[in-house]
C-alpha cells in the first residue's frame, strides 16, 4: 500500500538510502516563464541531521520549503522523503511558519491548536493526550494549555506552533524563518528550545533562515544559496559539539570562522554581479 502523497519507491533501501531522510534532485521552479525562483537544487538531509539553508532575502527559500512540503508542484526535478517520491503533501512532515499568529487558530485554545492535526491521524485519545502534554511540556508551555494564542506573547505563540509540530511526530520538521518575528532575547530562547527538542525527540530538521549566526549556531550543516534564481553556492559542515551554548559557542573560534566563511559566500555572488 502506498502512503498518500508518495508514489514510486526508490531502489529499495540500499545502504545509500537507508540513512537518508530527504533527497532533492535537479529541483527547479518557475512561477511563470520569466519568473524563475529556483534554478537548480540538489541536496540531501540525513536522518537525525539538522540542516540550515541560508541565502540572501528573496532567494526562493520559502518557495523551496513549499515544494518540499508538497504545497507547490515543482517545474522539474524530484523530491524524496526517505525512499518515496513526494507528489502531494506527504505524511510525516510538519512545518513551522514565520507567521505564528496566522498559522495558529485564534478561536482554539493552545491545547486544541496542538491537538488538531492529531485528530486526523490514526491515534487513540489517550495517546493523543499524552503527545499533546509531552510536546507542550517540551516547549515549556504546559501551564498555558487553556489560554488562547492571542493571550500569549509572540515567542510563546511560536512555541505553541513548535509544540504542534512536535506532537505530530514528524520524520522531518521544516521551519521557515521561525524566529524572524520576535525580539533578540526571545529569539535566543526559541533557538535553544529547538536545539533541546531536537535532541530530546531525535527529529530531522531543515531550517530556512536569512540569519547566518542562527544557522551556524543550530545546524550540523549549512547550505548556502545564491540570490534568485537560487542555486547552491556551498555546503559547509558545522563541526561543533552539542549541546551548544548561546555565550560560549558563539564566542568560540570555530563558530566565528564558520560564520565569516558563510557570510563571505553569501555576499560574493552579489559583489560579482555589481562588478
Amino acid at each position: 500500500m502506498s502512503l498518500p502523497g508518495t508514489a514510486a519507491r526508490a531502489n529499495a533501501m540500499t545502504p545509500e538510502w537507508r540513512n537518508r531522510m530527504l533527497t532533492v534532485r535537479g529541483l527547479r521552479h518557475a512561477y511563470s516563464a520569466d519568473r524563475l525562483a529556483i534554478a537548480e537544487l540538489g541536496f540531501q538531509v540525513n536522518s537525525g541531521e539538522f540542516v540550515a539553508i541560508v541565502g540572501p532575502s528573496g532567494c526562493g527559500k520559502t518557495t523551496l520549503l513549499k515544494l518540499l512540503a508538497g504545497l507547490l508542484k515543482p517545474s522539474a526535478g524530484s523530491i524524496y522523503l526517505q525512499d518515496r517520491i513526494v507528489s502531494a503533501v506527504p505524511e510525516g512532515l510538519a512545518m513551522v511558519f514565520q507567521e505564528y499568529n496566522r498559522s495558529l487558530l485564534p478561536w482554539l485554545r493552545v491545547r486544541a491548536n496542538v491537538e488538531l492535526p492529531l485528530r486526523y491521524q490514526a491515534i487513540n485519545a489517550p495517546e493523543r493526550n499524552a503527545r499533546v502534554a509531552r510536546s507542550l511540556q517540551a516547549v515549556g508551555l504546559a501551564a498555558f494549555e487553556r489560554l488562547y494564542p492571542w493571550q500569549l506573547s509572540g515567542g510563546m505563540q511560536q512555541r505553541v506552533a513548535i509544540a504542534r509540530a512536535l506532537a505530530y511526530q514528524p520524520k522531518i520538521l521544516l521551519m521557515d524563518e521561525p524566529f524572524a518575528s520576535v525580539d533578540a532575547q526571545t529569539r535566543a530562547d526559541l533557538e535553544d528550545v529547538v536545539a533541546k527538542v531536537r535532541m530530546q525527540f531525535g527529529i530531522t530538521i531543515l531550517l530556512v533562515t536569512h540569519d547566518i549566526d542562527e544557522a551556524v549556531y543550530l545546524a550540523d550543516r549549512v547550505i548556502v544559496l545564491s540570490s534568485s534564481p537560487s542555486r547552491i553556492v556551498a555546503q559547509i559542515p558545522v563541526e561543533m559539539p552539542h549541546p551548544r551554548d548561546q555565550i560560549t559557542t558563539r564566542a568560540s573560534d570555530n563558530f566565528v570562522a564558520i560564520r565569516s566563511e558563510v557570510a563571505k559566500l553569501i555576499r560574493r555572488p552579489a559583489e560579482e554581479a555589481t562588478l
Binding site: P4, G5, K66, A69, G70, L71, V89, E91, L93, A94, M95, F97, S103, L116, P117, Y120, Q121, Y168, L174
Partner: peptide
Amino acid sequence: QTARSFGL
C-alpha cells in the same frame, strides 16, 4: 497551508 501540511 499549515492545515494542508499536516495532512488535513
